[in-house]
């Protein structure tokens, strides 16, 4: 069967507390933390962007897969913060990792689900027999305007997944994608920050697509919630995925491992897939996991995976994501944060 042979995640070591942002704007920190169910979020260093994040995640994935990078036939990076508007991120990444030049690469954008669609296309290539290995990556340095609700969650990080047919650590059991034109969140050309439809991003957007994709993929696989060890849904905050999980019959215990949002925030294209990476860090042979992304605009990709015996061989070959989120953090002031994110105008 075809599935994941290597995976890796990376988050910058800088964070800002939600309370720091709330204090800046005179908001009540505890009610915001309680509303969003997150306490801090990651911030990219001054020399990081979605590409350097993708490179580090991809290096960890190759490290776990222990394959010759030259054998990777395709690389797709999903992000809504590609460093260039015109010029591929993918080519930079393949040169950084020693993949290619005989490689197919493309940059994807689909709001927060660009990462899972990169995985979907990579998986499909291997499944069709086009190539031996293909890599899908989602990484973002998410934008949120100062003072906007998004600022409390928009964060930085990413994950990479290499698909193959041999030495698979987690087989793909089933997939399903679900998309409609729903303008709940967007960013126009040359605009620094996205806009969103407030509560319109809830039921008509997030829940409609996430719940449909989840229901259909489980039906296709003939599985019920109790068949899974873990499930993860896109995490714009801590509240939405918990609610989606509860509606679909998942227990808090099944949801816990994937809820990296509490310390990571919303890494847009890197959100649900980094939660899934956290699940892979602990998934046991034979256990099943559900991954459902969501991208505004809007759509969801759903994957069902089942771990093989080989998963235990690779889990400790690269840093676990929860360890990265908990250890060695450097907390920024709001002033440092706006400078790091270039939210103030510099003169050079």
């Amino acid at each position: 069967m075809v599935g994941i042979v290597g995976y890796g995640s990376y988050v910058p070591r800088y964070s800002i507390k939600i309370s720091t942002i709330a204090d800046q704007w005179g908001d009540d920190a505890s009610s915001i933390e309680n509303g969003l169910l997150l306490t801090e979020k990651t911030v990219p260093g001054r020399d990081e962007d979605s590409l350097t994040i993708a490179v580090q995640a991809a290096k960890y994935a190759v490290q776990r897969a222990q394959i010759d990078p030259q054998k990777i036939g395709a690389v797709y990076i999903g992000s809504e913060s590609h460093p260039y508007v015109v010029k591929p991120s993918g080519t930079i990444l393949v040169d950084a990792l020693g993949i290619g030049p005989n490689v197919h690469t493309a940059d994807f954008e689909f709001a927060c689900k660009a990462g899972s669609e990169a995985m979907f296309v990579a998986y499909s290539h291997v499944k069709s027999g086009n190539m031996e290995y293909a890599m899908g990556i989602g990484a973002d340095t998410s934008q949120g305007a100062p003072g906007d609700a998004l600022e409390f969650a928009a964060s930085a990080g990413g994950s990479a997944f290499i698909f193959g047919a041999e030495n698979v650590i987690a087989n793909v059991i089933e997939t399903h994608s679900f998309a409609t034109d729903t303008a709940d969140f967007w960013r126009r050309e040359a605009q620094m920050y996205p806009r969103h439809g407030g509560r319109f991003t809830g039921d008509p957007a997030y829940f409609k697509h996430v719940l449909n994709a989840t229901r259909i993929v489980m039906e296709k696989a003939n599985l019920k919630a109790s068949d899974f060890a873990h499930a993860v849904f896109h995490m714009p905050n801590g509240r939405f995925p918990r609610k989606a999980g509860k509606i679909m019959g998942f227990t808090p215990e099944q949801m816990q491992q994937g809820l990296v949002v509490s310390l990571m925030g919303n890494t847009y294209s890197g959100s649900s897939i980094t939660g899934f990476s956290a699940i892979l860090d602990v998934l046991k042979p034979g256990e099943k996991a559900l991954l459902v992304s969501f991208g505004s605009g809007a759509g969801s990709d759903a994957f069902i995976f089942e771990a093989t015996d080989k998963i235990v061989d690779v889990q400790n070959k690269a840093p676990h994501i929860w360890e990265q989120l908990k250890n060695n953090r450097m907390y920024l002031t709001y002033g440092q944060y706006v400078a790091y994110r270039k939210k103030i105008q510099f003169n050079y």
């Binding site: 260093g45 020399d47 990081e48 962007d49 590409l51 350097t52 490179v55 580090q56 460093p83 950084a96």
Partner: peptide
Amino acid sequence: VELIFRKM
């Protein structure tokens, strides 16, 4: 030290 890939 360990070398990593960054924006210069």
